[in-house]
């Protein structure tokens, strides 16, 4: 459903991403991982239409993207700059639905349902500044859910919360998004997280970022923070991704994981 063809972007003379090619199928959860400064955010911002890439194309359902595409939602890392502090949680979640032509009653109902799914039914009337960081990020996720996008982009969505909340939010994403059958592109610098959450892990090199690894994740579901992370398969895959992220040559593994590298 999403296809990047030779996507490149340069800021002045700085080349952030260089000919990134990627195909994402409907319903896939793809994690993009890479060292800091590898142009992960540039990649995401190009797809979201927030910057115009200097080279290459983004195709969504086969059609080239110009500006912000319909049916796309983003969960940003910095929830404090993405949730509007002058609105309650339910108003924040319901606001994008105005574009969908729903009346107030149906918007509120949809927003409440989404808040319920992220476990915040009781906090609908709260304002962002009355909530913890983890709660605010849940509201952001609820906003994306209520919008029912075909493609959900997540830009380091759990980068600003503590470790425990991070695990909760990872599980929430897996559970809720699997339920909706959404296609997700999650960007992270955390190797563990990419393997834990993804159906597929795509590794970007240091700037100029380009795809250096594309590994399918075959872990038994449902995933679980403790058991999944102690599986041999998880540990080995994590090591593979870790090597790729650090720019080392990958081991030709003998454990049945298809590591494709370019």
């Amino acid at each position: 459903m999403l296809e990047l063809v030779d996507l490149s972007h340069t800021y002045g003379s700085y080349r952030a991403i260089d000919r990134v090619n990627l195909k994402v199928a409907q319903g896939e959860v793809v994690c993009i991982v890479g060292p800091s400064g590898c142009g992960k955010s540039t990649l995401l911002r190009s797809i979201a239409g927030l910057i115009k890439p200097t080279g290459g194309t983004v195709l969504l359902d086969g059609k080239p993207v110009d500006g912000s595409p319909e049916n796309l939602a983003v969960v940003f890392q910095d929830y404090s700059r993405s949730l509007y502090p002058w609105m309650s949680a339910v108003a924040n979640v319901g606001l994008p639905l105005r574009r969908r032509g729903l009346d107030k009653k149906r918007r509120d109902a949809a927003a409440m349902a989404a808040l319920e799914q992220v476990g915040l039914a009781g906090a609908a009337a709260k304002f962002p500044w009355e909530m913890s960081g983890g709660m605010q990020q849940r509201v952001s996720i609820a906003r994306a859910l209520a919008y029912q996008p075909k493609l959900l982009l997540m830009d380091e969505p759990f980068g600003s919360v503590d470790a425990q909340t991070r695990e909760e939010l990872e599980d929430l994403t897996l559970r809720v998004c699997a339920h909706h059958g959404m296609t997700i592109l999650l960007i992270t610098h955390d190797v563990d997280e990419s393997v834990y959450v993804g159906d597929r892990v795509v590794v970007l090199s240091k700037a100029p970022g380009t795809v250096v690894g594309d590994l399918p994740v075959q872990l038994p579901g449902p995933r679980d923070q403790i058991h999944t992370r102690e599986l041999d398969a998880f540990v080995r895959l994590r090591a593979e991704v870790g090597r790729l992220v650090r720019g080392m040559t990958p081991h030709r593994n003998t454990h049945g994981f298809g590591v494709e590298t370019r």
Partner: peptide, 29 residues
């Protein structure tokens, strides 16, 4: 107005009126 607020509005395709009325004006209030 914070760039993050405006980018959120763009991604979720708020109408021009909503951007003004619900993002820019409250933020400048």
């Amino acid at each position: 107005v914070d760039k993050g607020f405006l980018e959120t509005a763009r991604v979720f395709q708020f109408s021009r009126y909503d951007i003004l009325r619900r993002v820019i004006l409250p933020s400048a209030m």
